[in-house]
Each structure stands twice: as structure tokens, then as C-alpha cells.
Design a protein around this nucleic acid. Sequence first.
DNA 1: CTACATCCTCTAGTGGCTAGAGGTGCAAGA
DNA 2: TCTTGCACCTCTAGCCACTAGAGGATGTAG
Lengths: 140, 140
Amino acid sequence: MKKITIGEASRRSGVKVPTIRYYEGIGLLAAPSRSEGNQRSYETADLRRLTFIRHARELGFEVDAIRTLLSLQDEPNQSCASADAIAKARLVEVEQRIRSLTALKAELEMMVEGCGHGRVDQCRVIEVLADHGECMHSHH
Amino acid sequence: MKKITIGEASRRSGVKVPTIRYYEGIGLLAAPSRSEGNQRSYETADLRRLTFIRHARELGFEVDAIRTLLSLQDEPNQSCASADAIAKARLVEVEQRIRSLTALKAELEMMVEGCGHGRVDQCRVIEVLADHGECMHSHH
DNA sequence: CTACATCCTCTAGTGGCTAGAGGTGCAAGA
DNA sequence: TCTTGCACCTCTAGCCACTAGAGGATGTAG
């Protein structure tokens, strides 16, 4: 068994060193064994787990959701309904976020196009922000 | 001059009461005059400013950007180049965010579609997260 | 005059890290 | 062997933009 230092674990998983320690602190990653000099010593299973976490975080899953996904991963006999539900919920969130960002983009484009690059009192950027009536948002 | 309480200012601007006080604390909104009983008393100008802030926050502008936008608004003779630059930067951010969320959505859809609703060891949700090679992300 | 909503200040907590202080361990070169 | 210098350790505090709650004062309707 080769010992993997936290630095190497970081390099190989793409998770920063303080973040690995943070994950240990919040119980997302089990505390590894220590070397004689009290330094953390990881194994390849830990690298897999870290990569899993990093990937899930990149997909925008919250730490609590990841906790659930990890516990599911540990028991392969279980039904994957929970994992499916979590992913679906995340998909709905992402779709909603894309919709609102797209509306936003249109509004920002109107602001930027309308700005005559002159003085502030003719600038649509300020105007659109200041005047509620200009706003395209449906929720107003 | 009718006095506007913080609660009414909140209702009319759409900014929550503690958030208004918070904005005062960080110097985004000037401290208003007070009633005899030490209660904040706003004027219509404050309502306009609060609405401006709320709208800018909804568009995802950071508090620091809003500070700049507000100072521009206060001096209408100035060039609007800064406001334009801020809005453009925000537009670029939003476009980037939409792109990455769209990639994400595709990945989530693949995960959810692939899940056979059986046991975890056949579930693509877990599999995709665990196995780096499955990942579509370009940055890997 | 009494309820009761609203207001006040203050502190602490949220999520998911990140930065820094102040110290120890370890491997390689002189 | 010594020393240089990086990587590691723990701990606390900070980030953003709020939000929650304690504990008390004020204002208003019936």
C-alpha cells in the first residue's frame, strides 16, 4: 500500500487541499489514517470518493444531496429511486435557472444596446434599472 | 411629507425589512431621519433607490457594482461608460453561466434517462458521478 | 387601557469554502 | 550532518448577501 499525501490526493482528485480537510470536518469524507508524523494518508478508494464529490459539486449538487448519493453508492443493492429523485430535482432547478438567466440576458442586451455611450442621463443601463416600468420580468 | 415606515418601504420596494437595515449598515442606502420614537422614516427618493437596488440584485449585479451604478445615477452629467462596462461584464457572465448550465442539463438528462429505476448498481446517476470517463465536461 | 403588530439593536448562523497565523514533518542537496 | 524549503498540521477568522432570533421599545386599533 503506497501512502497518498493530501497534496497528491488533491492533485489527483482536483479538490483543493483545504477543501479536502473541510470535507473531512463536515463528515463528507471519512478521516483517513495518519502517518507517524500525524500526516493524513489516503487510499485509492478515497480518491474515487473525492472525484465523485468534485463531480457532483460541479453539477451543482448541494453537500447534503451528495451525502445521500454517497450513502446510496455504498449500498449497491438498494433501489436507486432516491438517486433518481435527487437528479431529477436538480434537473428541474437547472432548467428553471436557464429560463430565468435567458430572460435576464435579453434584458441586459436591451440595456447595453440602448446605451448611446453618451451621458448618464441618456443611458439605458441606468434608466432600465431605475424605472420599474421598463422591466420585462414577469414577476413584477 | 408623509412619513414612510420601514415596513411600508419594504412593501413598496419589495426589499425585506432586515435587508433594508442591512443595506443601511453597509452604506448602500443612506441612514434616514428618525421619528421621535427612534423609528426610521423614509421618503419617496429612498423608495426609488431601494427599487433600483432590488432590480439590480435581481439582475445579479453584485453589491459593489450597484454601489458604482448608484453613484453614477447621482451624477447624470458623467459619461455612462462605467455603467455600460458593468452591464456588459454582467452580460458576459450570464452568457457563460447559460452555456455551462446547458451542458449540465444535457448531462443530467442523460443520467436520468439512463436510470433504469432498478438497483443502485445499475443506476446511471451514481455511475456517471462515480466514473470520470462518462463525463461530458470539456474541462476534464 | 389593553392587545398586538411593528419597530429597535444586537449577535450569531447560513453554505461552501478560502486565507492566514504559527508551528511541525520530511526529502534532497551541500 | 546540516540546512533549506516545501508540504503538512491545527485553529481561527473572513467571504457574500443575507436571515433568524433574542429581548425590549413604540405605535395603533378597538
